[in-house]
Design a binder for these strands. Structure first.
Length: 613
DNA sequence: CCCCCCCC
C-alpha cells in the first residue's frame, strides 16, 4: 500500500455535523487509531467489555467506541496503536451532550504505522467545550436503569442521558444487500434501512384477542443485543410467518420492521420503542452470534421475596422441589379455561415459594427430576405470603448453563436436598388471612395506648415480644377428641355435650395466658392449642401428664419458655367482665424467630441501601 | 391491532 491519506477534517465534521448529513454518513473516512482502552459493560443488558478508542485524522482527534463485534480486532491484535483503517460503517450517539462516534465496521489498511501529525482536540462550532477526550468511565449508549425489579423499584439512574439521536445510515446499504448493523439502542422511528443483530431472549405464546375493534392473534419476542433490549410484536399473518422461525435463544438479523412508540406501562423493558414485525420484515438467523450477549439475570433469593411489593417483577433461581400436576382454572374475566401448573422452588435462603406456570409453559413442563430452574421476569404475588407467577413476558430456563445454576446444583445435591424449607405461608400467614408482617409490628406501648380493640371491628396487630411469665393455672382443659370442645367427667368417662358422646379419655388442649414484653412495655396475651404446642414443644396431654406426675418438672417446663421471643399476630378485642371493660389480646398466630430469615432480611436491607446510594 | 397473565 503506497501512500495512505487520512481523511483530514473528518473529526471536526463528525463532531459538528447534523445527523441528517447523509453525505458524511456515506463517506468512508480513513483514520488513525491513537489509543485503545477496554471498558467494562455498563450494566443493563450489556454483558460485554467494549473498547473505547481515540481516532485521529491527522489534524484533530475524537473519542470513539468500537461496536462489540469489532472487539476481536483489538484482542487478536489485528489493529494496533497507530494503525490506519477505513471506517466502513459508523453511527453517532449523543452522550451527555457530546457526539460519540461508534465504529460498526472497519478495515485495517496499514497495521503498523507512525503517528501522523500532532492532532489536537476538536474545537466545536459555536464555542462551548469540545468533545472530551479523557477516558471517563461512561459508555456510548444510554445507560439502562439499574435493573430495578429485584431491588429498589423507585431508584432511577443517576445520570439521565439524552437518547441517541437517530443515527443515519449509509445508503450504499449495498454490499451484500444488507444495511449496516445498528445497535438496538439506536433504533428510532426516524430512520429506516437499519438491521439489528439480536438474540431472542423471550418468546410468548401465540395469543388471540377479540374485542370491539376486531379480533386477531399475536405474539411477542424480546430482542437483545449488547446495547439494550426491545420488544417486537407480530400480528396475524406475521404470526404465521415468524412464530416458528424465531426461537428463544437464537440470534437473528432483523430489518424492515416498523419502529413504534412503546406504551411504557405495558412493558418493563428499558426502551422507548418497540418493533412491529410485518410480512415484509426480513428475519435471517445468524449463526455467528458469539458477540451477542445472552440473558442477564438479577436474582433475588426466595427469602427476599417478602421484601418485594406485590406485582414486582423479579428474577429467581432455585431447585424445583415439587412439581404439581397439570390442572386448569377458569378465568373469571374471560370464562376461558387456562392450563396451570405449580412448582415448589427452594434455594439456599432456606425458603420455598410456589411458582405458577400458565398456558403452554404449564403444559410443556416435563422435568420430573429436581432441576435448577431460573425465571426471568416473574411476577410477585401475595397469595399465602408470597408466590410467583410466570407471565408470557417471563422466561423459564431449565438447568441453565450459568454459574449460579451450577453452584445451586452442587449445594442442593450435597446438603440442600436434606434440609427443610420455610414457606412464605408459614412465615407470614396462618392461611386465614391473618399474617405476620414485620412492617406491621407495633410495640406494646403503642398497642396499649392506641384504640386497638376499642371499636366494633376486630383489630389485628403484629408484635415481636418475649415471654416473661406463663400462668400455670388453667393451662389446659380436657377437650373432646372429635370437636375440641370442653368435656366433663361423668364417672369413668368424659362427655362431650356438643357431640353427644362419651370418651374414656379426654384430649387436653392448651389455654395459655402469658405475660409478654418488648422494649416498650408488657401485655397479657392469650392463646390456644397451637400456641402451647409452639412454646412447649409438646402436646397438652404430655404436659398435663408431667404436671400430675412431677410438679417440679412441670414448673421447670414452664420456666424454660421464659425469655424466648416470638413473632405474634394478635387480635385485640373488647371484653366485658364483672362490669369492667378491658381489651384482651388473643394470639392468632405465633412464629418462632427464624434466624436465617432475619439474617437474610438484614442482608437485603444492606444491599438495598448500597444500591440506592 | 395486544397490554390479559387469570384460580385457590
Amino acid at each position: 500500500m503506497a501512500d495512505i491519506q487520512l481523511t483530514t477534517g473528518i473529526c471536526a465534521r463528525l463532531s459538528n455535523s447534523e445527523n441528517d448529513d447523509d453525505e458524511l454518513y456515506n463517506s468512508q473516512p480513513v483514520v488513525q487509531f491513537l489509543s485503545f482502552k477496554r471498558v467494562p459493560p455498563s450494566g443493563g443488558a450489556s454483558t460485554m467489555d467494549r473498547y473505547r478508542v481515540i481516532v485521529s485524522d491527522g489534524e484533530h482527534f475524537l473519542q470513539s467506541m468500537l461496536a462489540t463485534q469489532l472487539n476481536h480486532l483489538v484482542e487478536e491484535e489485528q489493529v494496533l496503536k497507530h494503525s490506519i483503517a477505513v471506517i466502513e460503517k459508523f453511527t453517532c450517539n449523543l452522550v451527555q451532550g457530546k457526539k460519540l462516534l461508534i465504529i460498526l465496521a472497519m478495515r485495517v489498511l496499514k497495521k503498523e504505522a507512525e503517528k501522523i501529525g500532532s492532532p489536537t482536540p476538536v474545537q466545536p462550532r459555536g464555542g462551548g467545550s469540545g468533545p472530551s477526550v479523557d477516558m471517563q468511565p461512561d459508555t456510548p449508549t444510554v445507560p439502562s436503569p439499574a435493573p430495578s425489579t429485584s431491588v429498589n423499584t423507585t431508584s432511577t439512574p443517576a445520570t439521565v442521558v439524552p437518547r441517541a439521536q437517530p443515527a443515519r445510515q449509509q445508503t450504499q446499504a449495498g454490499r451484500g444487500g444488507r444495511s449496516a448493523i445498528y445497535p438496538i439502542e439506536s433504533l428510532s422511528p426516524y430512520q429506516n434501512h437499519w438491521t439489528i443483530k439480536a438474540r431472542v431472549t423471550q418468546k410468548s405464546d401465540i395469543r388471540t384477542w377479540s374485542n370491539q375493534r376486531g379480533e386477531g392473534k399475536l405474539f411477542n419476542v424480546t430482542l437483545m443485543d449488547e446495547s439494550g433490549e426491545i420488544r417486537a410484536t407480530a400480528f396475524n399473518a406475521a404470526v404465521d410467518e415468524f412464530y416458528d422461525r424465531l426461537q428463544e435463544g437464537k440470534v437473528y438479523l432483523i430489518s424492515k420492521a416498523k419502529v413504534n412508540l412503546a406504551k411504557k406501562k405495558f412493558s418493563n423493558l428499558n426502551n422507548e420503542y418497540e418493533l412491529g414485525l410485518e410480512r415484509s420484515t426480513e428475519i435471517e438467523e445468524c449463526t455467528d452470534a458469539t458477540d451477542v450477549p445472552t440473558v442477564k439475570f438479577n436474582f433475588v433469593d426466595i427469602a427476599g421475596l417478602q421484601e418485594l411489593p406485590k406485582d414486582a417483577i423479579c428474577d429467581v433461581i432455585g431447585i424445583v422441589k415439587e412439581v404439581g400436576e397439570l390442572s386448569a382454572i377458569t378465568s373469571k374475566a374471560t370464562n376461558k379455561e387456562i392450563p396451570k401448573r405449580e412448582l415448589t422452588v427452594v434455594d439456599k435462603s432456606g425458603f420455598s415459594v410456589r411458582v405458577t406456570l400458565w398456558g403452554k409453559q404449564a403444559e410443556q413442563y416435563n422435568a420430573t427430576d429436581q432441576p435448577v430452574v431460573a425465571f426471568k421476569g416473574a411476577k410477585v404475588g401475595d397469595f399465602q405470603g408470597r408466590s410467583l407467577s410466570i407471565m408470557s413476558s417471563s422466561s423459564l430456563y431449565i438447568n441453565p448453563d450459568i454459574p449460579e445454576a451450577h453452584l445451586l446444583r452442587g449445594w442442593y445435591d450435597s446438603i440442600g436436598a436434606e434440609q427443610t424449607y420455610q414457606s412464605h405461608t408459614n412465615a407470614m400467614s396462618n392461611g386465614g388471612g391473618v399474617s405476620f408482617d414485620r412492617a406491621e409490628i407495633m410495640c406494646l406501648h403503642d398497642v396499649k395506648t392506641s384504640d386497638m380493640g376499642l371499636s366494633d371491628r376486630v383489630d389485628t396487630f403484629c408484635s415481636r415480644a418475649t415471654i416473661m411469665h406463663i400462668r400455670n393455672e388453667n393451662i389446659a382443659y380436657p377437650a373432646c377428641p372429635a370437636c375440641g370442645k370442653k368435656v366433663v367427667q361423668m364417672g369413668d368417662n368424659w362427655r362431650c355435650e356438643k357431640c353427644d358422646k362419651s370418651y374414656p379419655k379426654p384430649e387436653y388442649r392448651y389455654m395459655i395466658s402469658m405475660a409478654v414484653a418488648d422494649y416498650s412495655g408488657q401485655a397479657w396475651f392469650s392463646g390456644f392449642n397451637d400456641v402451647g404446642r409452639t412454646i412447649f414443644g409438646m402436646p397438652a396431654d404430655e404436659l398435663i401428664e408431667i404436671r400430675e406426675r412431677d410438679d417440679i418438672k412441670f414448673n421447670q417446663v414452664l420456666e424454660r419458655t421464659i425469655g424466648s421471643t416470638y413473632n405474634f399476630t394478635c387480635r385485640a378485642r373488647q371484653d366485658n367482665f364483672n362490669d369492667q371493660t378491658r381489651v384482651r389480646y388473643g394470639i392468632s398466630r405465633i412464629l418462632p424467630l427464624e434466624y436465617r430469615e432475619e439474617a437474610s432480611y438484614l442482608a437485603n436491607l444492606l444491599l438495598r441501601s448500597e444500591w440506592s446510594r
